[in-house]
Each structure stands twice: as C-alpha cells, then as structure tokens.
Design a protein around this nucleic acid. Structure first.
Lengths: 356, 356
DNA sequence: AGCATTTTTGCATTCGAATGCAAATATCAA
DNA sequence: TTGATATTTGCATTCGAATGCAAAAATGCT
C-alpha cells in the first residue's frame, strides 16, 4: 500500500531528482535544489513583500543567478489568475495618431509592470475575433482606441474584464473612459476664424458611425452656427491622408461657393487636404484657404504643415488610462469613471485672414 | 487508509462538483460536466487533429457554447511549452518607419496564430530588461527591429529562443535575418545624380554604432567615390525629423562648398532636411538642392515631400520574418537563414538637375 | 533558563489544459 | 457470431509557481 501510494502521489519534491538537462529552462525546483531549500522559499523570494529571512534570500538569489532563473510568468498567471497582459486595440496603419497613442500606452503599461498585447482592429468584425483572442490570453484588461460595438463591449463586461476606452465612449451605456473634450478649443478657434473675416467653411468628417467624428462635427457645426458661418459643404473621409486629398477635390467640384476655411476632423486628412490644395489645385495655404484640424500628432507640426490644430494630451491621457486599468484590476467593482481632458490649440501657420 | 488516500489525492474529476459560480470563468471541467464527458474529451475537441467522434464533438461544442468556453491559453502554454507569444522589439516613436514595420509584423503574426507582445526599446540598456521580460513571458520567439547587442543576442541564443533580426544583423556571428540590400539602388541613384550633373554631395548618417546607418553610408560613399563625387560634409543624426533639420544647418554652417545633393540615410531625416531647406534656408528642393534617402515609408510620398528614396519591401520582409519564426519554432535547430530583399527606387520629385 | 510570541520555512495543494496509456467501444472480416 | 483491428474515450499525471496551514526556528521577556 505504501508502495502504491508512493507511486500514485509522487510528491512534487520528488521532482528534485529530475536533473537539469542542458537546454531545459531552470524552474523554481531547480533553484530550490541547488540552494538546498524548498520550492516555496524560492517562490517567496521572487514575490515582493513575502516573509523571507535575509540569508535565505541571499542563498536563493545566488542559486537563481547561477541558473539564470526567472519566474515563469505563464505559470504564475495560472495560479494567481493574473496574466499582467493588457490588450491594446488600435486601428491600422492609416492614421499616425494610433502609433503615437500605442507607444505612449505601452510605455505607461511597462511602468506599471504590465505587458501590451497588441491587436490591430480595422472593423467591428475584427473586434469580434480580437476579443475572443484576448479572452483566451486571459488579459487583465483591455484598452480600446479602436472599433468596438456596444454588444462587444457587453461581452467583455459580462466576462468582468475591465475596459478603458481611449477617446471614445458609449453615451448610453456606463463605461470607463479617458476622453479629450475639445469643445472649448473649437469655440476658440471658430471665434478666431470669425475675427479673421472667415464666413464660409467646409467640413471634412469621418465615417458616420464613428463617435469621435460625430462629436467633433457636432461641436464644429454648433460653433460655426453660433458665429454665423455658412457651411458650404460637408464631406466624409476615413481619417487617412488620401481621403483628405479626395475630400478637397470633392469640395472644389461640388460647391458653387468656395470655402475660405476647411475644418478637418483629424490631422491626417488635414495634411492630405493641405497638400492637395497646394500641389494640385494651386491654392495657397493659408492665404487662399485656411485649414484647421484635430489631434495634434507629431508630424502635424513639421514645417511643411504646421497645422493649426486642437491637440489631445495623449501623454496624460495614456497615463490616466493605465492608472484606471490598474485600479480596476486591483479591486474589481462595477464603478465607472470618465476622465475628461481639455484640448489645447496649437497655433500653427495654417490659418490666416480670409481672402477677399 | 482509503479515507486518507481519498483526502490526499483528490482526483481531478472530483472538481466536477465545484459549481460554476456566477462570474467564474468556465473551464474545460465545467464543459465536461455539462456535456457529461471527460475533461480530456473537451481538450481534444479544441485541438485540431485529435481523434474525436462526430457526436462527441457536437455535444462538447454545444456545452462550450453555452458556457462561453474558450480554452485558457495560459494553461495551455504551461503544458505545451508554447506560449504562442512573439516579442516584437521596435524603437520608439521618433521614426515612423517603426510603426509601419510593427503593424505589418503584427498582422502577419496574427495570420500565423501568434500574438505580438510589444516592447519599445530605445537603447541597449532597455534591451537588457526587455529580454528578461520576454523570457519571463516564455515568448516562443523574438523579432528585433531595434537595438540589441551581440552579448544580448547570445543570451537569447543560449536560452534557445529563436531570434529574427529585421533589417539588421551581426556580420561576425551567425544569425537569422531578413534584410534589405539597397546597394544596387544606391548605385543606380548615384549614377542618376551624376547624369544630372551633380558633383558635390553631403551625407546625413545615423549614430556610429548603428549597423544600418553604417552600411548605407558605406554604400553611398563607395558609389559616390566611384562616380567621382566630392563628399563635402558628413553629419550624424539620430534618425528623427528634428535631427534632419539641424543636420542641414550643420552642413550649411560648416561647409565652405555648398553641396548640390544631400543623401540622408532615412526618410525622417530627409523630411526634416527638406523642410529646413525650404522653410528656413529658403533653398528650393529640388531646384537648389536635391535630396535622396532610404526606407520609403508612407509619408515620404505625401505631396509635400515626394522623396526620391530607396524603398524597403516591408510587407514581404514581414511575411518572411514570420515564416522564419514559425519554421524555427516548429523544429528548433541551430540552422540560420539570411533572406535578402532588393530595394526599389521610388522616383519622387526630390532630385533635379544640379544648379549651375 | 523557561515560556510566550513572532518570524521563517516547508508541505501539500491548486490553477486549467494536454497527453501517454489503457480500457472501452465501434468497425470490419470471415 | 466471433475474433481481430481500429477508433474513441477516460484516467491519471504533468507543466511551474503561489499560498494556506502547520511545524520549526528565532526572538523577546521575565
């Protein structure tokens, strides 16, 4: 019986006898054996705040170093139910806003000891499978700067995975958000344009289903109305440079009245628009046409563009997003938070007095 | 005795009695219980190519769907010794080449069923800790488009983690690489410049320790020599737009002879250089000064720049990199592969006949 | 020193899926 | 129908670290 028991339940400590074959990765058992202590001791040495005596720690660390031991984050994740992975959802490569956000967020996550699992999402169909992938990988949380339907969000909610939306949110469903509200700045810019004698504006917006686009367009329309502007034309783009170029063509072709200012809902389209104006239509910017936009991405301030744009404080927003993530992971509850940041007008060189 | 044994070794199947508490994630045991089968059966249903009968699969899948079960990739990784995670190392946010590479690689990894664990690396010190992080996360492989010293590489090699270098390599140590060799194109472009009457060139290179910079500079110098150019000045930048602007200032200030062409080792610096020439120095590009560069990133073809540049086929390179990764993960051996791609000249509008 | 208290250590178990092996079942041939 | 073979299924174990609990060791106090 003793025999059968020994056979049936080989204690974990028996594994000590498994030799560390060349090439096999050292485990906590290998370290324990070399240091002549128990596996638990090794584990505790690598967990800050555990009760461990000085000399024990020393012995273990020496052995660990010798074997190049590092705790296995996968195994740790299994037992602790924490992967320390955060899914970051950004949209593809067409809008240089996303890489900026992505890198900032990654940096902040790293500071918090978290890893970014990167997913690019181009549509809600993509989001569907991305959510399943993230779920399989036991991500502790999701930061979404990209497409996600309410239904998809609800799936994550039901699965109790904290989600932080980056500059987007659902107005009709509680959620956790970092958001940049540019309404003040929109007002300010439109007022400034009025002062500069502008009167006729064209709008380049994004897809109808895009919340950021809708919001920015709404703010623009409202302020333009308030200051008595004519909105001579409104075109939808898709946030890319190319769509900015074709949008301006559209405006030129289909408007009987030529606008003196084009308001683009993001920098990429504004750059396309500006290039098209200058290189193809032969309009000078800002002399013949003023351009304003949103985001304030790095390249919008390159000397060729120097856009007057409403900047998002991406750095602070990323910081906040990660803080919210960690809070929600520490103590999961139902509470939601909406952290709103002000925009900031970058006075570039893309606006001027309206041509007469 | 039977009692003590039961207590000491509770069979895993006993866990069936643990109820699926609201909020707890369904495991294969929950599915097994609901479907009235064993856990192994559930596991096999989710592993393609396992021997499972049709009706079994059906029953299990029905239960799985009901419980929203998805296999736990962390637990799977622990037992299979495969995390399906690939560390992607790119350099920070200053050079828009990296986001392009990153997104392409991520896309290709996704196609191969792998996840990108993103690390930004700004220096070799960063690389040090990134490598440890990646090791902890049991990444199956590393794709490095960023800093990594030979010593650091050797650590990964010893740990038997496949590494693929993206457009960089160690010439004195065997390694696996996708690389773009632009030497043909350099020759072609320099020849073209000669034909256009150019004679005096300036170089804007990168940090001395950077292999890509060194190689490109070497090729340029060689071709320029061959065609009898004078290299009137050579400045080091750091691949960023800003360093391109100041490099041109440098060139202007310190050269007694003004170059008719500036050759930049990447697009970002070329754009800075071009903007500085046009906006600050008042030199027309390409009339007063021709500019050529490397990479062919998306924005280098925006109408404001339209650089004549030597493009890397990033798409095909990423594809190759991921294929090499999967091959090396499937059957780990010592063999190395170097896959070299040709560059391609993008005939932009940044070069013209030399001013007289 | 003797006892109480605190700290340190080890044992045994757990997380969730995969898998070698043996048992059970299905399929086929004669 | 019987036996032989092929297929399917389940049992028990494994991966590597964390942790509750109890035993052991160290510390403090009188």
């Amino acid at each position: 019986m003793a025999n059968s028991q020994q056979k049936k339940k080989p204690s974990k400590s028996d594994q000590n006898v498994v030799p560390l074959i060349k090439g096999r990765r050292a485990t906590s058992y290998d370290v324990a054996r070399l240091a002549g202590v128990s596996q638990s001791a090794v584990s505790r040495c690598f967990k800050p705040g555990s009760s461990i005596s000085g000399k024990m720690r020393e012995r273990v660390m020496k052995a660990a170093k010798e074997l190049e031991y590092q705790p296995n984050a996968i195994a740790r994740g299994l037992i602790t139910q924490r992967s320390n992975l955060v899914a970051v959802l950004v949209s593809g490569r067409l809008n240089l806003y996303y890489p900026e956000v992505l890198f900032k967020i990654t940096e902040e996550l790293a500071k918090a000891g978290l890893q970014a699992l990167l997913f690019t999402v181009e549509s809600e169909e993509d989001a569907e499978s991305v959510i399943e992938q993230a779920w399989q990988y036991q991500v502790d949380a999701v930061i979404s700067a990209s497409h996600m339907s309410q239904a998809q969000y609800k799936v994550l909610e039901k699965r109790q995975i904290p989600v932080v939306f980056f500059n987007r949110y659902f107005s009709d469903h509680p959620n956790t958000v970092v958001y940049c509200d540019p309404s003040e700045q929109v007002h300010e810019v439109v007022k400034q344009l009025k002062t500069l004698g502008h009167q006729k504006a064209a709008l380049i917006t994004g897809p109808e289903d895009n919340m950021v686009s809708r919001e920015r367009a709404r703010m623009l329309t409202q302020s333009l109305d308030e200051f008595g502007f004519d909105i001579v034309h409104e075109v939808r783009g898709d946030f890319t440079y190319e769509s900015g170029t074709s949008a301006l063509q559209d405006i030129k072709q289909s408007s009987s009245v030529r606008p003196t200012v084009v308001m683009c809902i993001n920098d990429m389209m504004a750059m396309g628009c500006m290039d098209e104006a200058r290189s193809v239509l032969g309009w000078n910017v800002p002399e013949d046409l003023s351009i304003v936009s949103f985001d304030g991405i790095g390249m919008s301030q390159f000397a060729s563009y120097e856009l007057t744009t409403i900047r998002q404080p991406i750095g602070r927003m990323s910081e906040a997003a990660v803080r919210m993530i960690t809070e929600r992971v520490e103590r999961p509850d139902q509470s939601h938070e909406k952290r709103v940041f002000e925009g900031a007008v970058i006075q570039g060189g893309s606006i001027a007095r309206a041509p007469s």
